[in-house]
Computed example of a mutant assay.
Amino acid sequence: MISNRNLRPALSASLISIALVACSSAPKQNDRLEQARQAYEQAAEDVTVVKHAPEELDLARDALNVADTRWRKDEDSSSVEHYSYLTTQRVRIAQLIAKSNETDRELEDMALERRSLTLDLREAELLKARQEASELQRQMAALQAEKTERGMVLTLGDVLFDINEATLAPGASRNIGKIASFMREFPDRQAVIEGHTDSMGDDDYNLDLSRSRAFAVRQALIEQGVSASRITTQGFGEALPVASNATAAGRQENRRVEIIFPDAPTQISEFEE
């Protein structure tokens, strides 16, 4: 039987071990975020602030939520501190608004600060958009697409398939992999896959072949981790040629699969066959 004297050190060691594991799993505390949190909670409990400045208080809460989310994801501390700062400033503005007997000069200063904070938020949003665009360019550096009214159109030539076949050729995996990587990195992007053929052969056969080829590309993307709900397919057969079917070179151009990314914000470039 274990005595109480021997049991106490064992329990203490276990509790210390549990505490260390818990501490290692959470991001390091951010002092500015905690200060912002306290400032918001105090303001939210102030009946005067809630009554007279609900809009500013909501904006403070939104900024605090952004800061807290980025802290929990262990993102760049400067971003967490930026939104913590915005929270604190929004709280301060809410408190100023709640003082109904403020002088005209104080109210004017507050309006100027509100405009300044709005610009800060817009600059932060623009910075995030630029970073996403830069990452998009990096991810798609090996691709080439044409900007059209439908979005960015990536054309895959007939090298993906053998003649009259709808099974992807072994050499197609590299290009499919690049497209799948892009779609995994940017999960908000939808894709429309269209199949096209030349005019050789029966119309119905060409239509079925174009549909099968578009579906084969879709299946390959799904197998590489792209959600099926993000991809639609369509076959046009020989109906939409991009070159003359009177020459071998023209027919080769017409035998293609097009992947359309509707409303893609950045041009994709340098696709390697």
Score class of each variant (00 low, 15 high):
residue 213 R to V: 01
residue 211 R to P: 13
residue 183 M to L: 06
residue 167 T to W: 04
residue 226 V to F: 08
residue 142 A to K: 09
residue 199 S to L: 09
residue 197 T to C: 13
residue 177 G to W: 00
residue 145 A to V: 00
residue 129 A to F: 02
residue 187 P to V: 08
residue 206 N to A: 12
residue 234 Q to A: 11
residue 243 A to Y: 02
residue 208 D to I: 12
residue 126 L to A: 05
residue 250 G to E: 02
residue 228 A to G: 01
residue 247 T to A: 04
residue 126 L to E: 05
residue 212 S to C: 06
residue 150 R to A: 12
residue 179 I to W: 01
residue 201 G to W: 09
residue 194 E to S: 08
residue 135 E to S: 06
residue 147 K to F: 09
residue 140 M to V: 01
residue 127 L to Y: 15
residue 202 D to P: 04
residue 129 A to T: 15
residue 249 A to N: 13
residue 237 G to W: 07
residue 228 A to C: 06
residue 160 L to C: 00
residue 187 P to H: 04
residue 153 V to I: 07
residue 201 G to P: 12
residue 198 D to T: 06
residue 147 K to V: 15
residue 220 A to P: 03
residue 124 A to T: 02
residue 246 A to N: 06
residue 216 A to K: 14
residue 193 I to L: 05
residue 243 A to P: 03
residue 139 Q to Y: 13
residue 154 L to D: 04
residue 237 G to E: 05
residue 153 V to C: 04
residue 178 K to L: 13
residue 209 L to R: 07
residue 235 G to A: 03
residue 186 F to L: 08
residue 142 A to Y: 01
residue 132 E to F: 08
residue 167 T to Y: 05
residue 169 A to G: 07
residue 237 G to Y: 03
residue 190 Q to T: 06
residue 183 M to K: 02
residue 139 Q to L: 15
residue 228 A to Q: 08
residue 149 E to K: 09
residue 194 E to Y: 06
residue 194 E to M: 09
residue 206 N to P: 11
residue 223 E to L: 14
residue 161 F to T: 01
residue 187 P to D: 05
residue 172 A to Q: 02
residue 194 E to I: 03
residue 232 T to F: 04
residue 170 P to Y: 06
residue 208 D to C: 11
residue 219 Q to V: 15
residue 174 R to F: 04
residue 173 S to G: 12
residue 242 V to Q: 12
residue 192 V to H: 14
residue 136 L to Q: 03
residue 185 E to I: 10
residue 229 S to A: 09
residue 129 A to I: 13
residue 139 Q to A: 14
residue 219 Q to T: 14
residue 124 A to Y: 10
residue 225 G to D: 08
residue 131 Q to T: 14
residue 145 A to H: 00
residue 223 E to R: 12
residue 247 T to V: 06
residue 223 E to C: 13
residue 226 V to N: 07
residue 234 Q to K: 13
residue 201 G to F: 11
residue 177 G to P: 02
residue 231 I to W: 09
residue 171 G to H: 05
residue 247 T to R: 11
residue 157 G to H: 02
residue 193 I to A: 03
residue 161 F to L: 02
residue 164 N to T: 09
residue 210 S to G: 07
